[in-house]
Amino acid sequence: MSQYQTIHSHHSHYGWDNGIEAVRQVAPGEILEFEVRDASGGQLSARSDASAVGTLDFDKVNPVTGPIEVDGAEPGDAIRIELLDFAGVGWGWTAIIPGFGLLADEFKTPFLHISEYDEQRVRFVDGIELETAPFPGTVGLAPAAPGHHSVVPPRRVGGNLDLRDLTRGATLYLPVEVAGGLLSVGDTHAAQGDGEVCGTAVETQFSVSARIGLVKGANLPAPQCETTRPLRRSRRDDKGFYVTTGVGPDLMQASRDAIRAMIDHLGKHYGLAPEMAYALCSVAVDLRIGEVVDVPNWVVAAQLPKGIFL
């Protein structure tokens, strides 16, 4: 990947701000390599334990590499990011961070789990393997509103989208709000379930190569993307799925109920402790909306691929 222009990891920042000076100006069609730091900003290592989670400096989490300015990009246009390749470091972490996650009120103790991975598989624990499916959790442009904005919540201009379908071959379109767009990339993952329910995936460092393009006059209301592979399809699907559900008038509560039921299932049938089961849900279980039309109750399903169990 080194044949491309590289945006090095020391060119990173910790929030969105259209006042940050671009580190490079590129023409549409150029290929860049973004060196991305992990979501802890280097505060966690392969030798860290749960105590390190409790002492994280949150002013240094979720760094993004950039920004870059795209020639000719103006408000109303869209930046096109075609994801080409990923190169990782071979290990990643999944944490339960107090106060963060879908079940934050139930999981209040710091937890950290280290996984190893190669290009094909993530070895989560003995007997559980996931498919390696790298993607950047955060890809975004600078917002028009002045000042510093947290990198944690996603926005109209992208950011912390956590769309696991943005892997090799996918293309993301982001609406431009400021001249040049000011694109940054971060928060790379080796694997994640739809929902990232405990608040973290298999967090890791990747170098991401991407072709940067420009669509004039796109006028997108929010980020859009296209993929070259079926959504939610992997080699781990061949053994089928176990699905738990949440049913009720509130989608967030239904999501909580579906994940809580899946944690119970993983404990009863696979002997996983609640914290490990919750972490596994975050990296392997997909939350799906079953229906939102049958008033007064909606259905959320949590889908576990049985093929991850060896």
Rank of each mutant, 00 (worst) to 15 (best):
R229I: 13
A210D: 02
L161V: 07
A210H: 07
G217Y: 15
Q224C: 13
E203A: 03
V185Q: 04
A222C: 13
D250A: 09
Q205S: 15
Y270R: 14
H149D: 07
A222S: 14
V215Q: 11
T245C: 13
V208I: 11
T227G: 06
G199M: 03
V185M: 07
S282V: 03
D257H: 09
L182V: 07
S282Y: 13
H269N: 13
L220V: 06
R256G: 00
S150W: 01
F206I: 09
K216E: 14
T228N: 15
I259Y: 02
V157C: 11
D162L: 14
S184M: 03
L161I: 07
L266C: 07
G147I: 09
C225D: 12
Y242E: 15
A201G: 09
Y173A: 03
L182C: 00
L272Q: 00
P274T: 01
C281A: 06
D257A: 05
R236A: 06
T167N: 03
P223G: 02
D162H: 10
S255R: 02
T244A: 10
I212F: 02
P230R: 04
E226R: 14
D165L: 05
A279V: 10
D237T: 04
D264K: 14
G271D: 01
P223Q: 01
E226P: 05
G240I: 02
A254H: 06
K268N: 15
T227F: 01
Q224G: 11
R235A: 15
G240D: 00
A254G: 01
A191K: 00
S184V: 06
L220C: 03
G267P: 10
G159N: 13
L214K: 08
I259K: 09
E177I: 01
A254Q: 07
C225H: 15
T167A: 05
L231W: 09
P223D: 05
V152M: 13
N219D: 12
A279L: 04
S207V: 10
